[in-house]
Design a binder for these strands. Sequence first.
DNA 1: CATTATTTTGGAAGTGCTTCCAACTCATTT
DNA 2: AAATGAGTTGGAAGCACTTCCAAAATAATG
Lengths: 344, 344
Amino acid sequence: MGVTIYDIAKEASVGVGTVSRVLNNHPSVSEATRKLVIEVAQRLDYRPNASAQRLARRKSRTITAIMPYITNYFFVELLGGIQDALFERDYDLLLYGVNHPKQIEVYLQRSLRAGHSDGMLIASIDLPPDYTQRYLKNNFPIILLDRFNENFDSFFVENVEGARTATEYLVSLGHTRLAMITGMPESTPSRERSAGYHAALAAHDHVENVGIFHPVHESKNDGFSKDAGCEVMKQLLALPEERRPTAVFVTSDIQAFGAMHALKEAGGSCPESMSIVSFDDIELAHYYGLTTMHQPIRKLGVLATDRLFARMDDSSLDPLHRRFTPELIIRQTAGPPPSRIGTV
Amino acid sequence: MGVTIYDIAKEASVGVGTVSRVLNNHPSVSEATRKLVIEVAQRLDYRPNASAQRLARRKSRTITAIMPYITNYFFVELLGGIQDALFERDYDLLLYGVNHPKQIEVYLQRSLRAGHSDGMLIASIDLPPDYTQRYLKNNFPIILLDRFNENFDSFFVENVEGARTATEYLVSLGHTRLAMITGMPESTPSRERSAGYHAALAAHDHVENVGIFHPVHESKNDGFSKDAGCEVMKQLLALPEERRPTAVFVTSDIQAFGAMHALKEAGGSCPESMSIVSFDDIELAHYYGLTTMHQPIRKLGVLATDRLFARMDDSSLDPLHRRFTPELIIRQTAGPPPSRIGTV
DNA sequence: CATTATTTTGGAAGTGCTTCCAACTCATTT
DNA sequence: AAATGAGTTGGAAGCACTTCCAAAATAATG
């Protein structure tokens, strides 16, 4: 088929070992033979066979990333960070983008083939327990992003802390009747962020918690969608005015957009009739003037990839758990509560 | 190191050929031995070595996609389409995301290694001529997306036609003084879309072309950015009112956002003081109520990938050039021209 | 039961590289 | 001139699979 190192060896009248050494910049080759071999390789338009190299080297120079298509922004930002870190190291990226939850299992299965890739980044996915065991047993280098697992290196944003900050901010603006909008309550972001919400409220007796509201209908993407946010806001707006919260903490930007839409449709406005703070700081948030918690996603991608390489070098490293604190970005969707008759 | 088929063969007291046949579902194995081998393989926790399979099969079951991070939307949508098409075929995706133009050369070089992948999708990149030659010579299966090249299968959106449609629409609304905003004039989208703009104007003598405006400052992403759009709109707004166009066709949505921003800052509004139609229909366009040309990106990804498989099956296929016609999505940024005194 | 056809099987020969080891070359030292 | 050592070199032995071919086992036929 193609040109092999044997063809080069024959043509240049040297051994295959020498050819291989030249091609891999091994020092112990004389300058004369090096030149010769390179010349012949170019003349024959030699292209190394990647599969054979991988097999012989027992390395693939490839890493796998598996991540769901959450929001475009999150996905691209993370991928960009990973790719930056890979490019300089001359590694390739095998991407498993998850469109549907059932794909996860298939992808994890595939990743288990030996020689497939040298390491793996798993983002925004709760690792099934049986795979936890298998990866541990094989001592396969994996890094978790946006999730915590005590057995593996985990790079994640402090959801609890961030949610607390967001809620505290609303309280600091003077709101005394709050609610929260989440996605499906079992999902990891919903759980962790509502914990932060509760923690913040626990510190302020005078603030009333109207409740944590979530979509009742089955909804794609664990309820993190514009439609779901819209639906839940309607639940809130259906409350009698005196019970209705003056501010809500929304679990994700995308839901916040839906919530704002519902609010506007009902004749309300933001922040005049209701303040909103959400979480993620996706690209759109800027355009919408959404006050939200910013996550350093790209940085997370870069650092996690750096760590993966460290682990591939030395698999005996203890699991590292690195938390990133999200940052409150103040824009226009949160303000003081509407002044009511009888208040101040 | 790991468990190999030799280990299985020994343990099950069969030959390696038999083990291989079982693992590959080859029909000529008795039911009894099949069961036995499968049982042993599971017991030993056998995991096939992908590199060895690739080498022996001379196939990698992997395809490469190389594409720039244009807009998040375009990137993710295309990738999603490709991945859908790959998943069902059990193929893996090697992703080369281009953050910087200099990476293109490196990636193309890497892709040339034999056994690296079985085929390649190249999106939104003008293939350098020397690589055209090399790919042709190797008869390596490649498909171009969002670009035309007569030597290769090309799947692209009809830029000229789309731009003409957009311009025609502005004319049909009654505008008689138009301008166009492009990115860097040498870029492919700028060139093709301005050709469509010209074509439309050529058919309407009564419509005046104020000109084609582009960013003067060096700008990232070939001038397809919010800032560039903003800058160019300012050029237009600096024109005396009687020379200023009442409508502009903008080459991309992202620039249109910038243009709208500039317009608003100058005290104008859209479409009252100026109508805007752009091109792409990215996610944001919907939120902004932007009238724009929609491109079926996901579909383009799926069909191009399907074609790639057809070509990997039969490399003698003639180049196929498939054009997709973008569709005008009418929203709120284009309306009739402001009625002026003395008009009508 | 012998003969033929069919199914199943073992294992050698690839696949194209890396790497190790022994051998060889040639300059330097004694 | 012999001995030592550093620098080069060739090629066998992996790496872990697939696939082909001939042989063996089994089934079908007269």
